[in-house]
């Protein structure tokens, strides 16, 4: 059984009576443990696809099965429940709470799951250690460099051990070196068995994944596991 199964999914936005299609006829499966890149130029619908997959947005057509459960027509609060349990997000602009400590930022998803504070601190510390920031727990997030901030965001995305990690242009706002460090973390997470779906418009970043799905005008134009730069190069 596929972790994610989309059948003929469409998404339309309605603005003042004008209907704009963002996605149409998307059918794809993503299995547990895959590292997938969603690629396409801006406006192609790749972000919309990620939002639909990540329970941030409703789909207007077709069906979406998550772990075999039909999640195509869920209410907002039910979507929120899936977000807190099943997915973790890494954003291009980090989206950390500036005046909160690194630890507090990482603990945030656990707060909404109702996990007791002691347990939260334990899990968040572990997540931060796994991205190499075990020494920065009490720093405020705005005292960190961009690369460090994105690593905090990754820790936040994995702290509750979600089924899928979504990354929306995670290196788009970083210099090359920090970007590579971030990509290395994704590789490590992938090796540990995490499922990762990364949205990007840069081929170089996309090539880190083992599978690239190209989107254009709201449609899947190619789905390939055949590309040159396999993740193996980081193992050297």
């Amino acid at each position: 059984m596929a972790l994610i199964e989309l059948r003929n999914v469409g998404k339309q936005y309605e603005n003042d009576g004008v209907v704009t299609p963002a996605l149409s006829g998307v059918t794809l499966n993503i299995n547990e443990g895959e590292f997938v890149s969603l690629m396409g130029p801006s406006g192609s619908g790749k972000s919309t696809l990620m939002h639909v997959l990540g329970f941030l947005d409703h789909l207007t057509e077709g069906e979406y099965f998550f772990k075999g459960e039909d999640v195509s027509r869920l209410e907002k609060d039910a979507l929120a429940m899936h977000r807190r349990k099943d997915v973790g997000f890494v954003f291009q602009f980090f989206n950390l709470l500036a005046k909160s400590s690194v630890l507090e930022n990482v603990m945030l998803p656990l707060v909404y799951s109702g996990i007791p504070k002691k347990e939260r601190i334990k899990l968040a510390t572990k997540a931060l250690e796994s991205v190499g920031l075990g020494h920065r727990l009490e720093h405020l997030s705005n005292q960190l460099s961009g690369g460090e901030r994105q690593r905090v965001a990754i820790a936040r995305a994995i702290v509750h051990d979600p089924a899928v990690i979504f990354a929306d242009e995670p290196t788009g706002n970083l210099d090359t070196k920090s970007g590579e460090a971030v990509l290395k973390i994704f590789h490590d997470l992938h090796k540990e068995g995490h499922t990762i779906i990364m949205v990007t418009h840069e081929l170089e970043a996309a090539e880190n994944a083992e599978r690239i799905i190209k989107i254009r005008d709201g449609k899947v134009v190619s789905d390939s596991k055949d590309h040159t730069r396999r993740f193996g190069e980081y193992n050297k």
Binding site: L56, K76, D77, M81, F89, N95, L108, P109, Y112
Partner: peptide, 16 residues
């Protein structure tokens, strides 16, 4: 607004 968006993204419900 951004903070609220983030809180929602990590699973906060309407009521929370």
């Amino acid at each position: 607004t951004k903070e609220i968006g983030l809180r929602k993204a990590v699973g906060a419900t309407y009521k929370e």
